[in-house]
Write a protein that binds this DNA or RNA. Structure first.
Lengths: 97, 97
DNA sequence: AAGATATATCGACTTTTCCCGATATGCCAA
DNA sequence: TTGGCATATCGGGAAAAGTCGATATATCTT
């Protein structure tokens, strides 16, 4: 758990927004049907209004820090929040930072 | 409480370090005598090993975001952690982000 | 095997952040 | 009121992050 990298990942409006959206996938991505593994890049990109490459980079950055998990299913990659990471971060701030 | 600005403030190694030091002023700044109001800029600057201007900027940045408070006493400015801000941030991460 | 689609990576450009030296401001003591 | 500290602010050069378009890779369909 690299504090500094996590805070950097959270230091961007769009990335914070994406994390919010991923709290309620059904509500925020009504076009997608199944949410078992998360939401796919294309859906997120569309909503974010940035290019595909940018959003893809953002997601893989957040995955490297552990804030989200990625699951490849066929040609799609589904991303979802890693709630354990948020719980751990919350505790870290409470006690160690 | 501006999430984004707080995360930006926490996205720097030196600033994180300073916040750590300020958790235990007596231990980390043994040269200073009274800690009622916090630790003065000069002490922090010396320990950080960056220039006076840089450290001063870092501290006032963290003050603007609410992570620390500043108290001017004579020619010194004492900074200390604002524990409430950390508690609030911890809760925010737990429930809203 | 070829074309279509979803995602990832690369190279480049712009904007922001980092960090410095120089200078200004505020406060104290003589 | 002048000189000396402590801190703050300003201007700038270097490094990092943001963002794009182009291209590569992976997978599915036919």
């Amino acid at each position: 758990m690299d504090q500094l990298e996590i805070f950097k990942a959270l230091s961007n409006k769009t990335r914070l927004q994406i994390l919010q959206w991923l709290k309620e996938p059904e509500k925020n991505f009504p076009e997608q049907k199944c949410f078992e593994a998360g939401v796919c890049v294309g859906q997120i990109q569309q909503k974010a209004g940035l290019t595909q490459s940018t959003v893809s980079e953002y997601l893989s950055l957040m995955q490297r820090t552990g804030l989200v998990t990625a699951t490849r299913v066929g040609q799609w990659t589904y991303y979802k929040r890693n709630e354990e990471a948020f719980a751990a971060l919350s505790k870290l701030i409470e006690s160690e930072i």
